[in-house]
Amino acid sequence: MLRIITLNLNGIRSAWRKGVLPWAAAQNADVFCLQELKAQTSDLGAEMKAPAGLHAFYHCAEQKGYSGVGLWCRQRPDQVYDRLGDEEFDREGRYLRADFANLSIVSLYQPSGSSSEQRQQAKFRFMDMIYPRLADLRASGREVIVCADWNIAHREIDLRNWRGNRNNSGFLPEERAWVSRLLSEAGWCDVYRDLHPEATDQAYTWWSNRGQAWAKNVGWRLDYQLATPGIARAAKHAAVYKAQRFSDHAPLTIDYEYRLQTGGAD
């Protein structure tokens, strides 16, 4: 069984203080995909750089306290890639890919456009840039799982207050249509939704820090694992973990009936 967990940390140092490592050690996961490190390599302590029993890889943003993605892998990958070939977003540390034989696992952090119109335009640029790259991955013949904070709630059941957010970043019509294109035209599978097609409040992975959103479970489903059809069909169990809080996001765990291999094995 292959277990993959994705989690936006909202700061690796903050999540560390809240006990994310002891929790992670108990999960028996093969790969952790992390987003929003908010740290440079020089900020990472020895234990962050080498968590017990895990191989750690990071792509930090050039800007301090901003963005960044990571991978913790129980097996050492055959290859790790940290560049999209786009200068603007490579500087922001938004992509990290590990290859294990014929399987690629990606940690991706799509920009949020909620802070300003300027950042919303950056988000649209990222969406335009990443779409063909995801299409190329889909067409490569490899099995691929992209774990991301997409910063988009796709459907009305993916957030509590959908009516009031129709004109807000994260639920704009053009953002939702972009996700629909990924699924219908580009052929990606939303693994959680395939397993739980009608799940509502139990599917949320992010809660605002305002207005008691967590206490009232006024959440959004922003964190997805999108996969190529072959590996998506191997998914057997998916759940959002809410018993502890390490961040304003919750971890999404998905188990696949798949044996992780390295060294170019079939």
Rank of each mutant, 00 (worst) to 15 (best):
A61I: 00
L34R: 07
G68P: 01
F57H: 10
R83I: 10
H59C: 14
V31N: 00
D99T: 13
Y66L: 11
C60L: 05
F32I: 09
A25S: 13
L96Y: 10
G68M: 04
P22S: 14
D82I: 02
A46H: 10
Y81F: 14
L44G: 02
E36R: 09
L37E: 03
Y58L: 07
A46C: 04
Q40F: 03
C73P: 01
Y66K: 09
H55M: 10
Y95C: 05
L44S: 02
P22N: 12
S67E: 03
G45L: 11
R97C: 12
Q27D: 11
A61G: 05
G85S: 05
D43V: 02
D82G: 11
Y66N: 12
A39I: 01
T41S: 13
V20A: 10
V20F: 13
M48E: 13
E36M: 05
A29E: 07
A50K: 15
W72L: 13
A25H: 15
V31K: 00
H55A: 13
H59W: 08
W72C: 00
R74W: 06
V80P: 01
F32H: 08
L96G: 08
A26T: 11
E92K: 14
E47S: 13
Q27H: 07
D82T: 11
G93R: 00
Y81P: 00
C33D: 04
A56W: 14
A61Q: 00
D30M: 02
A24N: 08
L21P: 04
R91E: 12
A25F: 15
G85V: 08
E47P: 00
Y95T: 02
H59L: 13
E62F: 00
K64I: 07
R83K: 14
L34E: 06
Q63H: 11
K49I: 02
R74H: 11
R83T: 15
Q40P: 01
